[in-house]
Nucleic acid binder design. Sequence first.
RNA 1: GCGCGAGUAGCUCAAUUGGAUAGAGCGUUGGCCUCCGAAGCCAAAGGUUGUGGGUUCAAUUCCCGCCUCGCGCACCA
Length: 597
Amino acid sequence: MFHSLLQSRVQAAVRAVLPEADLALVQVRAAGEAKFGDYQCSALMAIAKSRRMNPRQLATDVVKQLDVSEWCEPVEIAGPGFLNFRLMPTAIAGALKGAVTGQHLFFAKAAQPRTVVIDFSSPNVAKPMHIGHIRSTVLGACLVKILRLLGHHVVSDNHIGDWGTQFGMLIAVWKILDYGSVGLFSSISISDLERLYRNASEQYKEDPAFKLRAQMELVKLQNGDPENLGIWKEMIEISKVHFESIYQRLGVTFDHTLGESFYNPWLKQVVSDLVEKGIARESEGAIAVFSDGVFTSPESKPAPKDDPFLIQKDGEWVANPVLIQKKDGAANYATTDLATLDYRCRTWSPHEIIYVTDGRQQLHFRQVFATFQTWQPETAKSLKLTHAWFGAILGDDGKPYKTRSGETVKLADVLDEAVDRAYKVVAEKRAELPEAELREIARIVGMGAVRYQDMLPNRQSDYVFSWDKMLALQGNTAPYVQYQFTRAAKVVREAGVPRETWTTADVALADPAELALARHLLNFGITLEAVGEECRPNYLCNYLYELAGLFSRFYENCPVLKAEASVRNSRLILCEIVAQVLQLGLDCLGIEVSEKM
RNA sequence: GCGCGAGUAGCUCAAUUGGAUAGAGCGUUGGCCUCCGAAGCCAAAGGUUGUGGGUUCAAUUCCCGCCUCGCGCACCA
């Protein structure tokens, strides 16, 4: 929209004044506050500084070369050298016209589409999905939607934990308790598996004989024993039924669900390849990747703080390697992730891979990424590896959110309770509506509230889970934004005039509330791009909250249906576009809207 | 010990990555339904951005020291 048009004009003007200036510095951004105009450019101060020029003089020279009169009021030079741009109401009205006639919705498809693999959700087999999985699932799903909307090619992959040492003990208990006997088989649920898991890990810790048996069962599984493979597959199927029920409720789908086990055939090869290339070596019986040379010759240069394979201990840099093979010969987490990374590059040739996991895995991913860069430098050059990590969900006590009895909180229970609580509110507010409709609204409000609460905080912060705050009807919450949508949609619905008659009308913006609302609409695209670049859906939450608030103020101050014909049509268009942007924006967050609520 | 985060209004959080007078909600105080849905709107009060330095036209943001909290640091994933 306008910011990119203005940006190229300013860049051209700067080039005319200073041909050798770095134009990449010249950015035009949405102004923080309305009194400074709609957009601002602060780059001239930086450029003037590096050249020891007077910034205001440079600004004056640039403005002389700058013609943006088709969109803006005369450009204002403010303070030490800001350029402030204020759009003319006619230009804003023109953009709204374009939107209502379907030419755009304030964003543009990427000029250079990228291929992006997004790895998210990743629950573990034999355990129910818990509260912690919501962040990865909801964040990842949001990134998938936004990047696709912006025209990128996205591959979503659910990297489920279906391989690992826990299956030894699980199979052992399964056999001891005879889960496989006829009749019992078809009725095993995820909660049975969970009990099995708890039972198994207790015995594993306390009973040496059981531990031995578990290890034996694991070896048999890994060597392809048909019985153990069958049990293992059964556990995966049971878990997948459970995962699917959650994903269906959340409206999340994946292009692929390639679990850890999928990469099993390549693990040995990854290890031997890394050893052959001298990247990994034997150490204390295991095979590990060490720092690439800095540690072994400390006199060459000081150890960089950002080397993930070094750590300072008692004033000296010592090795902090990553293990790719345990001394019993088995592969581990890093090995699987390296094989996965390799597979994804071979299969999809992505420009970027985004991993959405919790923050505790930061070191792990730094080590995996660094290993990959020395292992496959050519591929790594054109590949961006992003760890979009997030913080913990805490209870009122500031500790990880648990049930009263100290167990992890199951995701299914959270979703149920959100909908139940929403139902109570809806049933009270809209008692006249039929039961089925109340249920549907409660589902939309409850599910929306859970997601919104999760994406609103900066993802890197821990946040405190609060039922009251989540379903609050005011403030920066999903119900507030959803409510403003229903108001806007209802005005359009009740107008009772054929769409064609009002969409062909002129848009005239006069009231300050109309102008403020329209101006904010223009920033939808900038916001989507920022979310995609930084993996921060909270930008979108805040944008939509502001849009909803501006609409609400417009709604209070500017009658639509009762206004005279020309004003009425113009305001109808505003309502229609606001409804569209709110709906699409919420959809990017995975949140539905309702015509009534 | 080292690393990665966090510390902003009484509480829960923002601040588009160095921009102009640090913003919301809750809570508190006070207004607005004869008016398109009040799940709404308006107003007031509330701040030495943990702390001490530094960098510059400009610092919540970048650099250095210190304090508090969370997480991580070799065979779990």
